[in-house]
């Protein structure tokens, strides 16, 4: 039931206008990032740069390189770990009856909604006591733990759709728990694994509060570096704008290339109301 005639033109035009509105910040960011500091002026902010100045990028990249590396290590490790643990949890919680099983899932999922301000102080005390404070391993641990609720939830709702007969058949064939997991679950887990990984990667890459309170300077991820760059005494706006683009690039690329899965992650994350 697609519209025809005038409505069709109207709808299409409206979409184009809205798209422009949504792209305005990108335009502004790119334009500003390519200007030289002298050319950046509030009144002429919308104009294209008279001469391309890549200095913002080279400076930002040089400053950001170690933090980008931190972010990659952090996001990759934490994503994989939380995804693997989540899939095990999801499988167990979906197919086995546990004592108090009905209460377990809501209790786990609640963990993904809590405001982290309410656990921040004990968290850093704990990290200090366990000597995990300040470095990447500690931050990875924190992201894995607070990522477990969502990964468990996503995998569980996926495994619920696998018909029980499949497990039954494997059970008769004499496969034990890990056998079933290995021969039935893992081969089926490709797409959800991707969904979970994309979701977790974006979340962890973009996180700020833990990053700023739990790391020493040498282990800080990119979001903290960007906040420092933009919130410090920087006057020339080309630098934070170039920095923003560098910090955003990985997640935006993932999204553009694997957008389908990203949307699936979003939808699954919204629970099944």
């Amino acid at each position: 039931m697609k519209p025809k005639g005038v409505t069709r033109v109207f709808v299409q035009t409206l979409a184009v206008l809205l798209a422009i509105a949504y792209l305005i910040p990108v335009y502004m960011t790119i334009v500003t990032s390519l200007k030289s500091p002298e050319e950046i002026n509030l009144m002429t902010a919308w104009r294209l740069p008279s001469k391309l100045n890549w200095a913002g990028y080279s400076v930002a990249f040089r400053q950001f390189a170690p933090y980008l590396k931190n972010s990659f290590i952090l996001a990759v490790c934490a994503t994989l770990l939380s995804a693997v643990m989540g899939s095990l949890n999801g499988y167990v919680l979906c197919k086995y009856k546990l004592p108090g099983g009905r209460a377990i899932m809501p209790l786990i999922v609640f963990g993904m909604f809590i405001p982290y301000q309410s656990i921040l102080v004990p968290l850093f005390q704990f990290m200090q006591k366990t000597k995990l404070y300040g470095g990447l391993p500690g931050l990875i641990l924190v992201h894995v733990v607070y990522g477990l609720p969502i990964t468990t939830l996503l995998f569980r709702s996926f495994y619920q759709e696998i018909p029980d007969e499949l497990f039954g058949a494997a059970g008769i064939d004499g496969a034990d728990f890990f056998g079933i997991f290995k021969y039935v679950i893992i081969p089926l887990s490709g797409p959800p694994f991707l969904v979970v990984c994309i979701w977790q990667f974006t979340q962890i890459w973009n996180e700020f509060l833990f990053a700023v309170t739990l790391t020493r300077p040498d282990a800080q991820p990119i979001t903290v570096a960007l906040a420092n760059l933009a919130g410090g005494q920087a006057v020339s706006w080309n630098l934070p704008m170039a920095g923003s683009i560098l910090a955003a690039l990985p997640t935006v690329l993932i999204y553009i290339l694997l957008g389908r899965y990203f949307v699936r992650g979003l939808l699954a994350g919204a629970l099944k109301g």
Partner: peptide, 10 residues
């Protein structure tokens, strides 16, 4: 950062 470090004796 300084306070989290000193609170933990570091």
């Amino acid at each position: 950062v300084l306070k989290t470090r000193l609170l933990g004796g570091d």
